[in-house]
Write a protein that binds this DNA or RNA. Structure first.
Lengths: 345, 345
DNA sequence: TATTAACACTACAACGTTTTCGTGACTAAC
DNA sequence: GTTAGTCACGAAAACGTTGTAGTGTTAATA
């Protein structure tokens, strides 16, 4: 086993001082061409690579960014991670990942652990529990301590930081319009409680589209799911609620689901009731993931461009890390999503 | 903005030495009860948290483990990450993630970046390209430098390190047997090229099951996919090849797919040919993910317990990091997978 | 009264870097 | 022959922490 070599060892080996080695490796003109070459050759031979920990300590900054998301086993978040990782590598940064598992406590703990100087800044999408509690002290504190934070997807107005969002409301309106265009007039909305910003915004878009089309808003056509914990608990409840709604309101001819999982649940119910997609009921949902792609029929979706969101977020964060002027105002980027038409509408 | 406070600043504030503060915070009996309490109160007031970078440098080890996987946007790998993260948090470690994107070069670069002292050890599933090239110098070198490595899923015999694998061959045999039990005798196998260990092993299990049942092995019933790059390129090719096979061999009454995506492709083809699942063709696949779960009909699958694999891998790695005796022999853990019967068989 | 022991604390080195500020040796100019 | 200037390199501090080895004071023992 050959342990990693340090500058000090290299210096001893070469019979020169530590400073000389350091300067040679950094190609300083202070050192003669000859010595530089010798040192560099030795360094290469011994496979010297600088100790990043020492560098971080010295420079008082790290080349690592922290990503805190509720889940990785979730297509959208995985896409975001991919995007973040992409630009991180390109710009010479590492990515530390932490999963809140939709739990407030875990989010806080993970954030504090990360903030202990391992990390330069955060990219976060808060857990549902955090949003419900509206307790953002950990995020505020991090910002207070001078670490930049970028919020994405689930955004919180009272936090002043860079944000990457999706034009949720607008595209939900578009999606609703898309259904109306297909001559579906009784659209059921499958959404989350309003404390989740994306759910709220999408609901707003839905409402706006109906209003514009002059269709009265029926509250019984909106199913809001509590959505607090794991999907294996809430899905059966959602399915039975939906089933009841469909039975009691046979005029329903379309469903707008706020995410893919809800759409999958909807499909299951529709199948059980022996209705056809899209003839009897059209279906459109957010999140353009594998479920929609490989479903029967493939679903029309709203592609949220998770990778793009990750890219924007990472760039925003790294820009912030590398900028001198700390007082630049916060930026909010909107990533436009688009409707991917398949066969469910 | 209140910057993070250091021991030195605390010491100045309190009018004692740095050592006293350090020892007080660590509750050393060397320091009087009184002083200890005072220091701790101050530390709490100023929200002191130790600088992990400095600790890492001092202790010559970090509390961070690196995970290198081909993709996050992939149910199985996401599950593994979840498992790793779970035990990492529990045991006080951080998780650094890197995506190879199935590229050899990216894998090597990322690994080298990570290895620059940020990380204590690695959990890796090599990229397809790496497996094809059979170039494992980067992994060997890392091990040489004394960093523990745990390989999972895609395993390589010539690397001597801890491993977490799935009893692929055995369970593929079981899956095949499952189809045979349903009275399906002409089973098509949708697999990868042999250089991917999981593909190879599953193929072996398939062959063994047929042999045991006394059914002759037909090479035209095995479709091996190159599978080198992104799925959007290989899937159409796979689909057309499969379609041809199904047309030319109408006796085929079952398909064993080596992963979910292949199964989804198979479903698409079956649908196009207007055949029924499972009556005309039964379908079973590896990876118990969202596609299988929400497909029509829901697919019978082999659950690989990704989370469990991640848990085992992380524990193996952290055990290795924390053990004194460096020369303990390598361990290979087998995580048993099981067949989840749904409606496609 | 002199020695020892306990106590409560401090000084300092070390981890691996970079960088500032020397410091000799040599050369060139006066 | 003195002074100034360049060149090539080294010493040391700093980043934040911990642990070892002091250090001075007081109390107990011989």
């Amino acid at each position: 086993m050959k342990k990693k070599i340090t500058i000090k060892q290299l210096a001893a080996e070469l019979g020169v001082s530590v400073s000389t080695v350091s300067k040679s490796l950094n190609n300083s003109t202070e050192i003669s061409q000859e010595t530089r070459e010798k040192v560099q050759a030795f360094a290469k031979f011994y496979n010297y690579r600088p100790n990043n920990i020492a560098l971080s300590l010295k420079n008082k900054k790290t080349k690592t960014i922290g990503v805190i998301i509720p889940e990785v086993v979730h297509h959208f978040f995985a896409m975001v991670v991919r995007g973040v990782e992409q630009v991180a590598v390109k710009r010479g940064y590492n990515v530390l990942i932490s999963l809140s598992n939709e739990s407030f406590e875990k989010e806080v703990i993970n954030m504090e652990t990360f903030a202990d100087s391992l990390i330069g800044g955060f990219i976060i999408s808060p857990s549902k529990e955090t949003l419900k509690k509206q307790d953002y002290h950990h995020i505020h504190q991090t910002i207070e301590e001078g670490m930049p934070v970028v919020l994405f997807d689930r955004t919180v107005p009272e936090i002043n930081c860079d944000k990457v969002i999706v034009n949720d409301s607008q595209v939900a309106q578009l999606a609703t319009q898309h259904l109306l265009d297909k001559n579906k007039k009784n659209i059921l909305l499958l959404t989350t409680e309003d404390y989740i910003s994306v759910g709220r915004l999408r609901t707003q878009g839905y409402i706006k589209a109906l209003k514009l089309a002059g269709i009265p808003l029926e509250n019984r056509l909106i199913i809001k799911t509590e959505d607090s914990k794991r999907s294996d608990i809430i899905l059966p409840a959602l399915e039975s609620e939906l089933k009841t709604a469909l039975k009691e309101n046979p005029e329903i001819d379309a469903i707008l689901a706020v995410n893919e999982i809800y759409a999958a649940a909807a499909m299951r119910v529709i199948r059980e009731l022996e209705l056809n997609i899209p003839e009897d009921i059209a279906l459109i949902c957010f999140t353009d993931g594998v479920i929609s792609k490989y479903a029967t029929p493939p679903l029309t979706t709203v592609n949220q461009h998770g990778t793009q969101i990750g890219i924007e977020a990472a760039n925003l964060l790294i820009d912030r890390l590398e900028q001198k002027d700390i007082s630049e105002p916060s930026i909010t980027k909107v990533v436009a999503c688009e409707i991917v038409e398949r066969f469910s509408t």
